[in-house]
Write a protein that binds this DNA or RNA. Sequence first.
DNA 1: TTAATTGCAAAACTTTTGCAACGCT
DNA 2: AGCGTTGCAAAAGTTTTGCAATTAA
Lengths: 132, 132
Amino acid sequence: MKPNILRRQTIQRKIILEELKRVKTHPTADGIFTLARKKIPAITFGTVYRNLNLLRDAGKILELTCGRYSCRYDGDASQHYHFFCLKCKNVFDACIPAVGNLDRKVSQKLKFQVKYHRIEFYGYCQKCKAKI
Amino acid sequence: MKPNILRRQTIQRKIILEELKRVKTHPTADGIFTLARKKIPAITFGTVYRNLNLLRDAGKILELTCGRYSCRYDGDASQHYHFFCLKCKNVFDACIPAVGNLDRKVSQKLKFQVKYHRIEFYGYCQKCKAKI
DNA sequence: TTAATTGCAAAACTTTTGCAACGCT
DNA sequence: AGCGTTGCAAAAGTTTTGCAATTAA
């Protein structure tokens, strides 16, 4: 059923991952498509989405869900938190250390198996808080 | 531009909010539509979505974003965290107290104005962890 | 060679919206 | 009466998918 993942290195996949690691803007799939098309004009949406799904499943990138439509992607798959600006809708890394023991607390309370957690901060970024 | 919100009490709005507060399943918009249609067979998707948006904007319900498509809704708008089962995709309340000082830490670090945060736990619920 | 991957295009799915009719207040 | 709200249907926006051609290993 599931296709074998990341078995081949294609130029499309390489560029998508490279661009995602290069930028710090946590782009949407559409944004990645635009970035990739500058390097590979013939690339299509289907290829971008398929690769994003595969890279996410392989744990090489993070898929951040925000709002109704559209996810955002992060080329840095290590544990870290995010800040979402309520005004300009940009996403930033929230540079604080991981909160310890959270997963264990919830495991004990719910009797569930907690694998990981995410924390999202919401508010106004430096530029936007000046304009409110 | 923006319509005046929640100015009138309609039967549709009343049922949507009642059902959302009644169930503990954190349903999707589609799920709420199905629930509401049992009480008001003529209700439409448009009405459900419009009301969910208005109720969310008014702070009466929570909109939880999870995955690509589809948000989930929570009739309990008070501060609490959530657990997402990676297998059955159900959403549960994570009954642990709010983590203090988090917002302040990020505010100081980033020089942003942090209004609130959300924490999402991921793993396997009691039923699913037995089947892995 | 062969099977994963791509490009293309259509489909699927969720959410929004314009408009006339309806119905709270 | 006034206008917020609904039902209807079409549109918009995002993501997925079937298929034949391509291409990495």
